[in-house]
Design a protein around this nucleic acid. Structure first.
Lengths: 353, 353
DNA sequence: GAAGGCTATGTGACCGCTAACAGCCCCGGC
DNA sequence: GCCGGGGCTGTTAGCGGTCACATAGCCTTC
């Protein structure tokens, strides 16, 4: 999107006198050419002589004209917006995904527009409705679980849809993510093969956090195959995750002192648990192993590095954005499936063999 | 813009056969009334008989019609979007502000649209340009420092503008935030009155982080009035803040072992420093006091509570949103100034007297 | 020097919706 | 019976751009 670049005039561009928003006609009159030509100049499309171009740009800048994309979009049936819908911004997983998206979209002419659902399907539905009513060029939405109405809307939108974060399920169109079931399994395998056997699970209570649940399912399934069960569980909701991690760890170890491993559904509560264990002088990872999930580098710098599994957040954003950008450009294909592989980061809280 | 997809659900809303986006006319034909009446029903505006209303709603739902806000906005000259421009999402300060905004806008019919500038004035300019070209009902933008062109655009937009986070400067229209200069001063006062005298400052290198700089200026000014100077400084950029906090603290104390207080420009590096000090067995807050800034509750749960100052992030978002919502509703006033008061949270890392 | 092909610009018809107004029907009051 | 006034619905004219096409010059080319 090229804009009349500004020479360094000290003077702010003149104030619009009529307080009526400027239109192409204003620029066209000021520069003595037709509206169409102004439009061409401002969009850098079609042939315009250099002389005319300059005239127009000068006039536009002088007036402080900002094109009206609403009118443009209506006329051209083209919208450079990409709707991005995530459940939360405080999760710190999502800001990173959004970062990947922004970054990748940066030089495609596409613009991300973010919406937040607070993990509520109803809210997701209304956010999607709202966003689709702006006829974006594509939609990126977290998760594979949506209300029937949401799925129908997305399917009917006739634009590329990319569901992200998770690949365990039935995508509407394209999907980019990791298998949380598999992530849970792999962590279980690592834990088992490090010799831990009495395992506790700590997670969120949130019923809508399908991904955390899938991790737990995969985790449990893999343990079961090794003849091991989850001995104790604890769930929380709300509050500061770090503090909750402490509390839950204390509670669980008080209740089940024989546990030799704690698997946390996210790094923040894991970090809380880790801090608590260190304070109590518990031998980590000798007597007690710990692991979280997400690989948030925010936590680099803890006294000990928590074992975790990278959720490929940034890359998920990038790949999703690439799919949208690719399809919105030319012949649409759709139905892509990108499964990324989360990497286990053993850190210092799982025994080395 | 249309792609074949698979219709294998039980009974989704019937697929749009022509793959041409639905319009009011489709609904109007399906329900046997005029487009205008459909429009009225869908917007809940004007009198429509219950019988007609039901007919229309049924038809719209059956078709899976999603209104085209682009056309609607063009015709009505009304857009329910509020542009929100922040420098970063990874700062974890901003997601909270956005939360406050979303929350407050929720039942106003207004919709926030987020843009990210990465602390770059050029990027801010282009993000603003892009957003203004959608003719939003208002703009919320972080900071008071903008390029001349950005200021001109905002001034000329003819819509409510709210600059947030900071009140130390010259606002374009309305402003909601705290005085970072004063925040720095207050922290200095607290430190001085707790008896600390040999003070180090640790912060970001980022030249565009005006607010951190203002805090430092206020801090230094207040110290100076007490006849105290900053004895040592250290700045970082990039990397994990927690880890950087450790490193910088180690480096500074190696260089200036006599310091008795460290003031960090944000809580994350402060937390890193705190963890490092505790590991080293340094007597905090006896021999060495520590303080950060922001009051991020993410960090509740550290072994010791870091002294900090709440930046009123959520409330800033709320108040800003209220201003936009209030003005967009009725007669515009503008020029409001809301200065919030950051509260000192002494935590456990400043000596009590 | 006429035909053909560029390049640079202008012309009208929309894009899908809503504001404003016009009309119709039915009611009650005088 | 006529009039006035609601309640409900339809009609017309844009909103501010862009598309497709027409057009005017001018330069080749033979």
């Amino acid at each position: 999107m090229s804009r009349p670049t500004d020479p360094d005039t000290r003077r702010p561009l003149p104030r619009n006198p009529a307080l009526r928003p400027l239109t192409l006609r204003d620029v066209s009159e000021a520069s003595g050419v037709s509206e169409m030509t102004v439009s061409r100049v401002l969009r850098n499309r079609g042939d315009v002589s250099d002389a005319t171009r300059d005239k127009v740009l000068v006039a536009a800048k002088m007036l402080g004209y900002v094109p009206n994309k609403i009118a443009g979009a209506l006329a051209s049936q083209r919208v450079n917006l990409v709707a991005v819908v995530v459940p939360s911004l405080s999760n710190l997983v999502f800001p990173e995904v959004l970062g990947g998206i922004s970054e990748t979209l940066e030089d495609t002419g596409l613009q991300p527009v973010f919406g937040v659902t607070n993990y509520s399907p109803e809210r997701e539905e209304s956010v999607l409705y709202e966003m689709l009513s702006w006829r974006p060029s594509g939609v990126i939405v977290a998760g594979l679980e949506h209300s029937d109405a949401s799925r129908a809307m997305l399917r009917n939108a006739g634009i590329p849809i990319v569901e992200i974060m998770d690949v365990d399920g039935d995508p509407i169109d394209s999907v980019v993510g990791i298998s949380h079931v598999r992530a849970g399994r792999e962590m279980a395998r690592a834990i088992i093969s490090a010799g831990y056997r009495r395992i506790g699970f700590l997670g969120t209570k949130m019923p809508e956090d399908y991904r955390a649940r899938k991790r737990m399912q995969g985790f449990e399934a893999e343990l079961a195959e090794a003849g091991v069960g989850i001995e104790d569980r604890e769930f929380y909701s709300g509050g500061s995750a770090l503090a909750k991690g402490r509390e839950m760890t204390a509670a669980m170890l008080a209740r089940s002192p024989n546990l030799d491993f704690l698997y946390y559904s996210n790094d923040m509560i894991g970090a809380g648990g880790l801090l608590w264990c260190l304070e109590k002088g518990i031998d980590v990872p000798g007597k007690l192993g710990l692991a979280g999930f997400n690989g948030v580098d925010l936590l680099d710098g803890l006294p000990r590095k928590l074992a975790t599994m990278d959720a490929c957040r940034r890359e998920i954003g990038q790949r999703a954005a690439e799919i949208i950008a690719g399809q919105s450009g030319s012949g649409l294909v759709g139905g892509e499936r990108v499964e990324l592989t989360p990497r286990l980061q053993p850190g210092d809280t799982i025994r080395k063999l």
